Simulated assay, not measured.
Amino acid sequence: MKKNMLLLFLLPFCFSCSSDSDSNENEMYFPPNNSDVWETETLQSLNWNENNLQELYDYLILKNSKSFIVLHNGKIVIEEYFNGHSASTAWYWASAGKTLTSTVTGIAAQEGFININNKVSDYLGTGWTSATLAQENLITCKNLLSMTSGLDDSLGDDVSPSNLQYIADAGNRWAYHNVYVKLQDVVATATGQTWSNYFNTKLRDKIGMTGIWYDSGDLSVYWSNSRSMARFGLLALNNGKWNGTQIINSNYMNEATNTSQNINLAYGYLWWLNGKSTYHLPQTQYQFSGKLIPSAPDDMYAALGKNDQKIYVIPSKGLVIIRMGNVSDPDNPTFASSNFDNELWQKINAVIN
């Protein structure tokens, strides 16, 4: 009798917990694949400050932006195009596209084609660098994901063996290096498919993105419209799940969007992380104190590309924010975070807070 009474007492709480979880999931909107339809939400319904919106637009125009999108729980709140750009125009992701490589590497791992803890040479064979065999065998796929290959980052983007030279044991040095693109070769070799075909089948087409990989010398750069970038950001916001389907393992996504090593706390698996006590930037070994982007939320993680291509993901606020365009400051081009990020977030905060 006592057991039955206890069950009757707990039952309403169980239903309440289940219903809260379901309603949270139901709050998230996903645009249909192969369609331009995308539900919207108004600033007024969110109690955002519309009076400060024009100042945000003026800043974006001044800083050579081409597009700016804000999603809240998947719905479009702001979508604007500037300087002759349009919703159908493709633009390059630059290094923001590194996060695409990170995600597809995770998909290949969950399908059993690769293990990110294995040596890169297990998939590409030995001699893919000019390091000694012992030095090369220290480099794992995870080292490429976390930018800790130990290869010399001062030699440019060329990833031919002669240009991939040892400077430190893998795992002991963080340096922003184009060698991460070797992960695309790892995936292609392990799956027996071209990188583009595997990417299209396992990620792009599953979430309704458009776009292509464009090879320019040693760089493989993704081009798409801005909404495709927003779709990918929405997938990240939902920890790899798209409209009820887990595209990429949530545990992997959690690892990818948290600190991946103990040198650059603000770096995951090709994702940048805010809210950490210190950070490193490309082309320097200096450790900076404080947050990567002081005016942005602490829980934000971001895909950051040359000339200020941006995907900001803020789980605590249910936000995905996209910026595509030319470099914001022609006199001071950067590969990752810049003063532009901090100033832009000040303008964003004036609208959303």
Rank of each mutant, 00 (worst) to 15 (best):
A303L: 10
N115Y: 09
A90M: 05
L234M: 15
P333T: 00
L344Q: 08
Q283E: 06
K63V: 06
F113A: 12
G97P: 11
M5A: 14
Y166S: 06
N137D: 07
G150N: 04
L151F: 04
S16Q: 10
Y286T: 09
E50V: 06
Q135Y: 08
N349S: 13
V186H: 09
A190V: 10
K202R: 14
A168R: 06
T245H: 12
L292W: 04
I247T: 14
W272F: 08
Y252E: 07
A190D: 11
E343P: 00
D341M: 01
Q346E: 15
L237M: 14
L100E: 06
C14V: 13
S196F: 10
Y301L: 09
T245D: 15
G211E: 06
I263Y: 02
L281N: 01
L235I: 14
N200Y: 14
E111F: 07
A94S: 11
N274K: 09
F288R: 09
N52L: 00
N258D: 02
Q283I: 00
L151Y: 02
L304G: 01
S19V: 09
R323M: 09
T201Q: 15
L62K: 06
K142P: 00
Y252D: 06
N197V: 10
N254L: 05
P315Y: 04
I348M: 08
F113P: 05
N251F: 05
L8D: 02
A230E: 11
D329S: 02
I61F: 00
L265W: 08
Y57V: 04
Y279R: 03
G125Y: 02
W345A: 07
L151N: 01
A131F: 07
I76E: 13
S121Q: 10
E50C: 02
K119G: 00
A302D: 10
S35P: 12
G325W: 05
T89A: 04
F82R: 04
N172K: 11
T334A: 03
G150V: 02
S160G: 06
I314S: 07
W91P: 00
T132M: 05
I321L: 13
W128C: 04
E55A: 11
Y57F: 12
L138R: 12
P32L: 15
L145P: 07
T101S: 10
W38M: 11
